[in-house]
């Protein structure tokens, strides 16, 4: 594990949205605890995975890091800078080193813009090319890099398939050779046969440009192929963090183990090896007391409803926020 100074360091980041702002009669003191105090750091060159079910706060975390929204509280250090202290102008200048790839390749591209123009935009905005010919050759180079026909220049987004559009979005994100890329569910809207292409492309680009990724997904199998370390999120908090091996082979949190056992392998034989959880993820407005997973946890006891579990260190790189890590580590399907 590279222990250099981290490229990104997030400390106790919190984002509370006012709850139900559309209902004027709603109690005004209620908040959506979208991100409820998360901390992690990502060394340069690492792929860090953030995993959890929908609504657990993954995209909110991404938007906070990109400063598309401002946090309620917390600290973000990026590339040695106090990232949250940057003013508008300085932030715009720094944006080129931090890029995002969104889930939906349809909405992240302007439908009326030819892709050549869409890809030329970053070069023009940041004035990095000296001539139009140079812009053009950079765009062709980009298209080639993400596996598209360099002659596809003059075509519009609708003329491309979902996977191809995601390649264009990736090309745009890497155009200015960023240091850090946030990929928020980059393959979730793609066909199965195309997901693997995009995962492989992201892996190749990482090698080639020494990129650092924050890779967000609701699917553990998807992150497993790319990530070095993984954090599992539940209701606004990280409940477990560890290296990829530790998370998959040796998880010490019941929720992670449930997520893993809910993965259905393409194999009809082991039909009964699932831990089926009761209930659904509760509303982020009314966070359960104590351990926020306790209403659904298969091994919860009375104590779990009263106090918040501390972080249990399992190795230098692995921790779990659970009172019963030993029991959790034994948890398998009945």
């Amino acid at each position: 594990m590279p222990q250099a100074t981290p490229l990104l360091q997030v400390e106790n980041l919190i984002k509370h949205f006012p709850a139900d702002s559309t209902r004027w009669f709603a109690k005004s003191k209620e908040f959506v605890h979208a991100v409820d105090g998360i901390s992690f750091s990502i060394p340069a060159g690492e792929v860090f995975g953030l995993v959890g079910e929908s609504g657990c706060g993954k995209s909110t975390a991404a938007r906070l890091i990109l400063r598309l929204i401002e946090p309620t509280s917390g600290k973000i250090q990026f590339d040695g800078m106090d990232w949250l202290a940057l003013g508008e102008k300085e932030l715009r200048r720094q944006r080129r080193v931090m890029q995002i790839i969104f889930q939906d390749p349809y909405s992240s591209l302007n439908p009326r813009m030819r892709i050549g123009a869409a890809l030329a935009e970053p070069f023009e905005v940041h004035k990095v090319c000296s001539s139009r010919a140079e812009v053009r050759s950079r765009v062709e180079e980009l298209l080639q890099m993400v596996g598209l026909d360099p002659q596809a220049f003059g075509r519009y987004p609708h003329e491309f398939s979902g996977g191809q559009r995601q390649r264009i979005a990736i090309a745009r994100a890497i155009a200015l050779k960023p240091k850090f890329v946030v990929a928020d569910e980059p393959v979730s809207s793609l066909d199965v046969s195309v997901q693997a292409q995009i995962i492989n492309l992201l892996a190749d680009l990482r090698e080639e440009f020494h990129l650092t990724y924050l890779f967000i997904s609701h699917s553990l199998p998807v992150v497993s192929h790319l990530c070095d370390r993984i954090a599992v999120m539940y209701l606004g908090k990280i409940v477990e963090m560890g290296s990829r091996d530790e998370i998959f082979r040796n998880s010490g949190h019941p929720y992670t183990r449930v997520l893993l056992s809910a993965v259905l392998p393409p194999d009809p034989k082991p039909k009964s090896s699932r831990i089926v959880l009761r209930g659904e993820i509760p509303s982020a407005v009314k966070i359960p007391s104590g351990c926020r997973f306790h209403p659904r946890c298969p091994i919860a006891d009375a104590h779990c409803a009263e106090a918040e579990p501390p972080v249990e260190t399992l190795s230098a790189t692995h921790w779990s926020a659970c009172f019963k890590v030993n029991e959790a580590a034994q948890l398998t399907a009945k």
């Binding site: 199965v192 046969s193 997901q195 693997a196 995962i199 699917s219 553990l220 199998p221 998807v222 497993s224 192929h225 990829r244 091996d245 998959f248 082979r249 998880s251 183990r257 893993l260 056992s261 993965v263 392998p265 393409p266 398998t332």
Partner: peptide, 12 residues
């Protein structure tokens, strides 16, 4: 092409 891995398995 499926990304698959389950509890206790090592991802490729």
């Amino acid at each position: 092409s499926l990304p698959t891995v389950t509890l206790g398995e090592m991802p490729t």
